[in-house]
Design a protein around this nucleic acid. Structure first.
Lengths: 224, 224
DNA sequence: ATAAATATATAGGAGTCCTATTTAAATGTG
DNA sequence: CACATTTAAATAGGACTCCTATATATTTAT
């Protein structure tokens, strides 16, 4: 305990405020994209999420949960995207209550277009060294995982919780992990946040993977 | 270049998506706070910002820029807060065009109340080890600084750009930095994002401080 | 069969947030 | 000093967000 601890707000508070500042930049970015694509930030979000989840039709509810908004909000944004011809909405054959939302060709076109641009936030992240980026990716994934376990956000298909993930099994410091799905080694910088090949691991494998993942040493300077 | 680089989106893209996921949790948190305090997320934001900027009256414009929203949006939120008696708005004596916005006692009370609660995002950040938290704080600060330099967000009174900041001058690994304002050593975990005692450094000092700051080595395991 | 739970839609309302424009004051120029 | 320019904020108007509460249809459980 130093004099400064008494003068400081808790670290978690300043971290949250810092993420919030980055969030302000991201919000401004999203309105910029809106101009180009003709979509509001929320609509762009919905479209990107559906695009990323492959061919299976999405439910309204899971879209709402992913965005962190109430279900009627998602209903409304989806309706707007359907009107624009970027999504289709059909009744789920397996459950007549539920909707099956899919992206259209035009929708994929828009997502591709958005993906080409680099936002000011992404440019800022690019100024970090490659090693810093990898470290930040680790820390972000850990935070996301903690949010998932706490139930604050819905499950995300991250490598860490994947049955095909083998943490830290190779000697190569650049590519210590292994993906049993594609059967290839990969590195911290390749860790995914929402992988289409993801299969949920059972609890035991998960604990083990998490432990191996957490033990990774970073003997790197902050710059590089 | 490994096979996985070809399969992966760029790291900056996944970082942005990850920050976005955390942002979804933060958004949900903010609506939760709204219930307790009777404020909308934007209003709470405005109030917290004015509260943090001490006694000097704020301008509408700087509030808008801080939030990353258009000026009329800020005008509207400020008006709501004035109606609720949490802010006051007066004409700036030095410039009759400009407004001088200050927080009231009731406003400070609300901010204090909001500060007592811990959000789910903060709890998630708390699950990181103390060293990870410090690392993340560094990386967040660097990213914020990059955003400032790019003009994506307005100047923030971070230690790094402060004339009182001496980066990395002490041998104590826990408290390597020095604050010449309070004349005391402090550590990475104490770095501030928006300090009231901040004085902008000149360019030369700034470059030097940045360099010293960047050279900090992190020979820590990710867990701890 | 009937009750409970689930998926979505609808209604209603406060608030967000934009662009474009207006008002007023400060600044800069011939 | 008049006049144009710039700057700070307010206003107008409109699309969208986002909530809670409730209604409807369907599935699941008893």
């Amino acid at each position: 305990m130093t004099p400064f601890d008494a003068l400081s707000t808790p670290v978690y508070r300043r971290l949250r405020e810092g993420l919030d500042r980055i969030g302000a930049a991201m919000r401004a970015d999203q309105w910029g994209l809106a101009e180009d694509s003709g979509l509001s930030p929320t609509q762009a979000h919905v479209l990107a999420f559906v695009a990323g989840r492959g061919a299976k039709g999405m439910r309204v509810r899971s879209i709402a949960e992913h965005l962190g908004v109430a279900q009627p909000t998602a209903t409304e944004s989806i309706a707007a995207l359907v009107r624009k011809g970027l999504l289709t909405k059909a009744s789920d054959p397996d459950d007549a209550r539920a909707a099956s939302i899919q992206i259209t060709g035009a929708g994929q076109e828009i997502v591709r277009g958005i993906g080409l641009a680099m936002t000011s936030t992404e440019r800022a992240l690019e100024t970090l060294s490659s090693k810093e980026q990898t470290m930040l990716l680790h820390l972000v994934i850990k935070t996301i995982r903690a949010l998932q376990i706490a139930g604050a956000i819905p499950p995300q298909r991250v490598c860490i919780s994947c049955r095909y993930f083998r943490a830290n099994v190779h000697d190569d410091a650049e590519l210590p992990h292994h993906c049993a799905y594609v059967d290839a080694p990969f590195g911290g910088r390749h860790l995914r946040l929402d992988c289409n090949e993801h299969g949920e691991a059972d609890q035991g494998a998960l604990d083990q993977a998490w432990k191996a993942f957490s033990g990774i040493a970073y003997d790197l300077p902050m710059s590089a």
